[in-house]
Structure formats: structure tokens, C-alpha cells
């Protein structure tokens, strides 16, 4: 089956990101396709590349990035939520004249339509939040 995933919370503060990661790992191991993970609200913070958690803890941002590469998963950060919370890629940096960008490899920033599209395209949409 084809899955869409929505993550509403940032990493570490809430368990939502880790539950979503474990769900995605199981889904792909069982032969399902994870088409897209859409990060909304504080969930956009799953996509910052400047996180340096202690080595004995899970690196959530890196884990997403690795999953995306291994299983060809589209990791989409909502642009409206990202702008409120200071997440930027090259395009956002240029558009808003920021002095840098902070998006993790494997993520991209796009509009809310990507979430609706995931709902339309996928057999199941599963939401993880607070």
C-alpha cells in the first residue's frame, strides 16, 4: 500500500517523530511504499541540519534523512510553518534575504498542497502529533 505520513510535532519534545519513524521503518520493511512525510506545525524542526544531540541519543533529523535516501521517501516541510519557525532552504534564503539556510539533506520545503495531495494519492494517511 501507499502511505502518506503527517508529523505535527518537533523532535525530542514529543514522541510523535519517533513513533512516526518506527512506523515508517515497519511499513517499508513490510513492503509498503511511504510516498511522502509532511512536516507541519513544530514538526518542521525535524528538518534542521544543525541539531547535534548527545551520541547516546537518537539523531532524529539524521534518521529521517537516511530513511529518505534508503527508501526514496519525499520529506516535505510546510513552507508557511517553516517561515514562522525559521527553517530555510536555498530558495527561502534567497527570497527572504536570510544570511544562511538550515535544512537537512533529503528534506524540501513546499506548500500545504503537498499534504492534500498525499491524502488524495495515498491509500492511507497517518497523522502523528501531540
Amino acid at each position: 500500500m501507499k502511505f502518506g505520513i503527517q508529523v505535527n510535532e518537533g523532535p525530542y519534545t514529543h514522541e510523535a517523530s519517533v513513533t512516526a519513524i518506527n512506523f515508517v521503518k515497519s511499513a517499508v520493511a513490510k513492503g509498503h511504499e511511504v510516498f511522502r512525510v509532511f512536516f507541519y506545525h513544530d514538526g518542521v524542526n525535524n528538518g534542521t541540519r544543525y541539531a547535534t544531540p548527545p551520541q547516546d541519543d537518537i539523531n532524529i533529523q539524521q534518521t529521517w534523512s537516511n530513511l529518505a535516501k534508503e527508501h526514496n521517501i519525499d520529506l516535505v516541510i510546510c513552507v508557511a510553518a517553516a517561515q514562522r519557525r525559521g527553517l530555510a532552504d536555498d530558495g527561502e534564503q534567497e527570497r527572504n534575504k536570510l544570511d544562511g539556510n538550515n535544512i537537512m539533506d533529503g528534506f524540501r520545503i513546499s506548500g500545504l498542497g503537498q499534504l492534500i495531495e498525499a491524502g488524495i494519492e495515498c491509500d492511507r494517511l497517518v497523522v502523528f502529533g501531540d
Binding site: G111, L115, E117
Partner: peptide, 13 residues
């Protein structure tokens, strides 16, 4: 509020 933003965008679909 952010939910309502999704509703508005989603309306176009």
C-alpha cells in the same frame, strides 16, 4: 489556526 490554513489551501483541490 494552522489547521484552518490547510482547509483553505485544500479547498482548491
Amino acid at each position: 489556526w494552522e489547521s484552518l490554513e490547510v482547509v483553505l489551501i485544500g479547498a482548491a483541490f
